[in-house]
Design a binder for these strands. Sequence first.
DNA 1: CTCCTGGACGGTAACGTTTCCAACGTTTTA
DNA 2: TAAAACGTTGGAAACGTTACCGTCCAGGAG
Lengths: 356, 356
Amino acid sequence: MSETFPSKAAEHARPTMIDVARRAGVGLGTVSRVVNGGHGVRDETAQRVRAAIDELGFQRNEVARALRPGKKSTSLALVLGDLTNPFYASIAKASLEVAGQSGYAVVLGSVDEDPEGEKRAIQELVSRQVAGLMIVPDQGDHAFLEGAGVPVVFVDRPATGIDADIVMVDNEGGGRIAAEHLLAQGHQRIAILLAPSYYTIGRRLRGFRRAHRAAGVDVDESLVVQLPEGTAEAAEKATREVMLRADAPTAIFASTNFLAEGVLRALGVLRSLGELSQEPAVVGFDDFRLADMLPTPVTVVASDIAELGRSAARLLLDRASGTDTRPPQRIVLPCALIERGSGERPPGSAGNRTAG
Amino acid sequence: MSETFPSKAAEHARPTMIDVARRAGVGLGTVSRVVNGGHGVRDETAQRVRAAIDELGFQRNEVARALRPGKKSTSLALVLGDLTNPFYASIAKASLEVAGQSGYAVVLGSVDEDPEGEKRAIQELVSRQVAGLMIVPDQGDHAFLEGAGVPVVFVDRPATGIDADIVMVDNEGGGRIAAEHLLAQGHQRIAILLAPSYYTIGRRLRGFRRAHRAAGVDVDESLVVQLPEGTAEAAEKATREVMLRADAPTAIFASTNFLAEGVLRALGVLRSLGELSQEPAVVGFDDFRLADMLPTPVTVVASDIAELGRSAARLLLDRASGTDTRPPQRIVLPCALIERGSGERPPGSAGNRTAG
DNA sequence: CTCCTGGACGGTAACGTTTCCAACGTTTTA
DNA sequence: TAAAACGTTGGAAACGTTACCGTCCAGGAG
């Protein structure tokens, strides 16, 4: 065993530009020039340097590079909620793709639920010198970002305390479309299930109300149900309660994909128990996988979530590079109705309630 | 306007330890000591330093910190496929949580499909001096990671060319359980749909075969369907074809969540066309949202995917900190059958085929 | 032939932190 | 009382890169 362990040697290795320079018999600056595009270096010299790089397996240390003043790191930060929610997953995937195409990596902050945790996560990310932040903000004040010296793009909803770029969907329009659709079927008593008061939900409710006003139909405030949580379980419970009332609604608008799931679950249970005096129409907000394969395919108001992520990443990259110096932008993507069946049930749809 | 713009000032600001030291009237080393836990600093001095930190809004520059030899950055890299797949999303979420609890951020590499893109993404990540890599590997050779000097944990499947930690589910056991379950119902002709030859799929097939052998039933090789893609569409097409054969199977094992979706889609279409001479039993691999709400709830072989991500992150953190110096580990999580209905259909289930 | 211009290249400072070492003052021990 | 030991502090080197500045040489103009 005259040779050293390759693994050990490799661990100590990690050649630097200095090693490359020595190997190629050139100066440090020349290596740097070659690595960065090679302008102002003779072809022959550049070849020699590149050869040395290959032989040593040199890779530029991005950390050291980012340390230089002015040079921002080539990574973006993404702060969002539960990746298990396909909505967030789509945003992450899309922004990741766009960033990757420009050679940027994406750092995901650990995302707690409370605003305090979000703030901590963001500051963690800022201390890592990311070139920009994409944030799906929580409710807290985000003024602390003002002086961070890093471009910020908010996704899906604006944040309070700071004026920054924002990419979102037309929540109010979506809520309006959903309500208009149900009203057009002749529904007069439409329940709306609201997840905890995020900005988006408020907008969807506003659209819902506007559609009613335009149609000359009063909103029964007892059918505007504010849930304590944005989970399917909470929606299931609320749906059960509202549908068992004597004056049950003839339609339900679920303001979220998870809520729609809960509504369907509740209806399924009630149906099988014969407790459903009539089958309500259902419209959800945001499309979800298998929505078209359920016993009654689910009508939803949908938007291009991936485009949300792509737009945010593109905008942020332009801000980070200094290409884009316009005042804070506000990008709003449209919503469209996807009719699948559940939203087209007329008010009178017979249920199969047995004698109570 | 005697004052400078606060925003502008803030942009130029980003106070350093040197600023803090000057402000507190202490040396640079002292500030560093305070920031890192404050051992060996008099209480009164530490107070003064902390006051200066608060006044200036100082935040440690993690990039500069990671530059020091020995000090690895406090971020882990995660390389995986389509985040839109709930399987990957669960892994990402879980590992993110564990990493976050230890103060680590997670960097997601941009993930192309081809092995070459994966290699590029990994090297990008390595050049960012991450403390460790979690990889859901593609098929290519991963020997190039051997000398990277960074701990690696593979997730879901092993990689060739390198001996490293691996966290995975019991694919063979899962395949076996699925087949056993169907065989126990009396099924003798079971089709299995295979996504492109990943390691995991091969193992599931092996378990499938073993169960058959144990039961004394021959596998009809024409029912072992290798798909060109792992998409629902490919599975839908293959299911249509196999179910229209004269000797159609009485059961189908979909080796992936997306494939299960395709199977159900095809069956739905065939059913509505009256082309289904008999209703096959269906078992999927990996659970998916709404599986229990479909017209026939879907029986699946499932495992704790989140635990996959958590284990991987924990193991990697221990490796990165040097706490864990054992030889490469192999963690295998169990699979269990979730019976929901589709997998419990007996072989004779009448379809509703009309005269062709 | 000389001077000047300009391209190619080498050397060095600087980025912000950690770590080591030396220096200082105070207290304990001989 | 002197020496040693210890805890606290300041200063400087180093991490790997980029940017700037100066030097050198070749070639063109005068």
